[in-house]
């Protein structure tokens, strides 16, 4: 349970970090909070030859409000996001999801950028980013680019991020006034990986019909699922949690797993979707 040897770099600026990544290529691994990479290295599932420690870089830890979004620096810790009054007011789904990550000490250390780059299919922040249509700002030797979260995640722990690129910040769209949200998940032990998780944000019009629904399902496939067709079909209709939940169940394709049968995951998706929607409607 000790990591293999590695060379250690601690750049003081984003430019220095990008230069190190450009120089060392795929043998270098960026280290943010280390709450996923650390266990993987201790168990020797990951053995990078070099670690580029991002924690001494100034200016990657921030929370800014713009007209339509909350822009959050990649090195911002989960606990900061969960307890920020700005995030709680402008993007409450994100705050609630961040509050449910791992445990207290894990949240104090783990970072937004680290979670997205790691892309665990059961993780909270990739799910919220995909559900809300967040924009991920990435820096590399070819300059900066912004990637829609839906296009960012490719599959299990795989993203479109190139080995010489780093996440700089993430823009989460602000919730509308009266928009209701819910984040529900199921795991066997508190703080463990979710066997299924559902993120919902719903805005009703004056006639209590769905003006905008955002729905994402995590922990079920190899990346967050956003059931676009189901969402589009629901708009303009009176929300019916049971019917929407039954449709969500059919919208996912969980893999068979000896410990978690696919039919069980489908059942979880239906139950969690119904609970999440009901929670939204109750708070309206």
């Amino acid at each position: 349970m000790k990591p293999a040897s590695f060379a250690y770099h601690r750049p003081r600026s984003l430019g220095e970090a990008l230069a190190l990544l450009a120089e060392h290529g795929a043998e270098a691994k960026p280290l943010a909070g280390g709450q996923s990479l650390g266990p993987m290295m201790n168990m020797r599932l990951a053995q990078p030859a070099r670690l580029i420690d991002l924690n001494a870089i100034k200016g990657l830890d921030f929370l800014n409000e713009t007209e339509n979004a909350v822009e959050i620096g990649a090195l911002t810790r989960h606990q900061t996001i969960a307890s920020s009054s700005l995030v709680r007011a402008a993007c409450p789904l994100l705050a609630e999801a961040a509050q449910s990550i791992g445990h207290y000490a894990i949240r104090a250390r783990g970072t937004l950028g680290g979670s997205l780059a790691h892309a665990d299919p059961a993780a909270q922040l990739p799910l919220v980013a995909a559900t809300l249509g967040a924009e991920i700002a990435v820096a590399g030797p070819r300059g900066e680019r912004r990637i829609a979260a839906q296009d960012f995640f490719v599959s299990l722990m795989t993203t479109v991020l190139e080995p010489d690129e780093l996440i700089v910040s993430v823009g989460f769209p602000k919730a509308a006034p009266r928009e209701a949200h819910a984040f529900v998940q199921f795991s066997r032990r508190r703080g463990d990986f979710a066997m299924a998780a559902v993120a919902v944000s719903v805005l009703l019009d004056v006639q209590k019909r769905i003006q905008r629904l955002r729905l994402g399902i995590g922990g079920v496939e190899d990346k967050p699922v956003v059931p676009t067709r189901l969402i589009e079909q629901s708009e303009g209709k009176v929300p019916e949690p049971a019917a929407l939940a039954a449709a969500a169940r059919e919208a996912v394709s969980p893999a068979e797993n000896p410990r978690v049968p696919a039919v069980y995951r489908r059942e979880l998706v239906e139950v969690l979707t119904r609970r999440a929607l009901q929670k939204c409607l109750n708070s309206n």
Partner: peptide, 12 residues
Amino acid sequence: QPARACLLYAVQ
């Protein structure tokens, strides 16, 4: 701030 000492490298 609380942290797992087994997930940090002393050099950090």
